[in-house]
């Protein structure tokens, strides 16, 4: 916010707050229009009551039913007991609800559950599903990149999405690449180091 220029390391950084907003507003609107057209042509309208949804989360098909207006975030949290993603800002600003869908870092509060169907959704819970946690998790602990911890799962997922695209980031790229998440306790100093350490450990 105090930096005059948004870093334009698109390829390298993968994700920046401004870039994210631009891409979601343009692409998001397009997708929504297409889906509305398809619905109109098929003559099928969803809702207003609950509709069945099938979500592919962390490699598992999960079925539930929600009203079409439910976000992916609320569906995960309130229906599927996947509560690692947090609801904080209510409106696509803070990144606490970050997940990865089809390889893209997404705020799950900005996507409807019905629209998330058919996508490969990765959540924070996937990082400790194996025998060993994903290297980003212990790196956050090592650098104490957390205090109250409420923003932390979102930061960890944003870091994963960032490192998936840019496995060898510079320090400045880390700062630009994680601009889409906010913390109130003030853990950024540790997070910067954690992401660099995770990048190193992912290669080891």
């Amino acid at each position: 916010m105090s930096t005059p220029k948004t870093p334009t390391t698109k390829k390298a950084s993968g994700f920046s707050r401004r870039g994210f907003l631009q891409s979601t507003s343009a692409a998001g609107a397009g997708v929504a229009l297409l889906e509305q057209d398809a619905l109109a042509q098929s003559g099928k309208a969803m809702g207003p009551g609950e509709v069945p949804v099938t979500l592919n989360i962390n490699g598992k098909e999960m079925k539930t039913s929600v009203e079409p207006r439910w976000t992916l975030l609320d569906t995960m949290r309130n229906k599927l007991d996947l509560t690692g993603a947090k609801r904080v800002c209510d409106r696509g600003t803070c990144g606490a609800c970050t997940v990865i869908t089809n390889g893209r870092v997404v705020y799950s509060c900005t996507m409807l559950a019905v629209d998330a169907q058919g996508k490969k959704i990765e959540t924070i819970e996937s990082l400790t599903a194996g025998s060993k946690p994903h290297p980003i998790v212990p790196a956050f602990v090592e650098h104490d990149a957390q205090q109250c911890g409420y923003c932390t799962p979102g930061f960890v997922m944003a870091s994963k999405g960032f490192l998936d695209r840019n496995p060898s980031p510079t320090y400045d790229q880390v700062k630009a690449g994680l601009g889409g998440n906010l913390c109130r306790c003030g853990t950024y100093v540790g997070i910067r180091q954690a992401v660099l350490t995770a990048a190193k450990n992912l290669k080891a």
Binding site: T83, K86, V137, V141, T152, P153
Partner: peptide
């Protein structure tokens, strides 16, 4: 390193707002 570090950074730590008790009203 903080003892609850892994729980927090893996999303396993359950905050009051994460609780889903049976029959919850909102």
């Amino acid at each position: 390193s903080r003892l609850d570090g892994i729980a927090k950074s893996s999303g396993k730590a359950k905050y009051p707002s994460d609780l889903n008790r049976p029959g919850t009203l909102f």
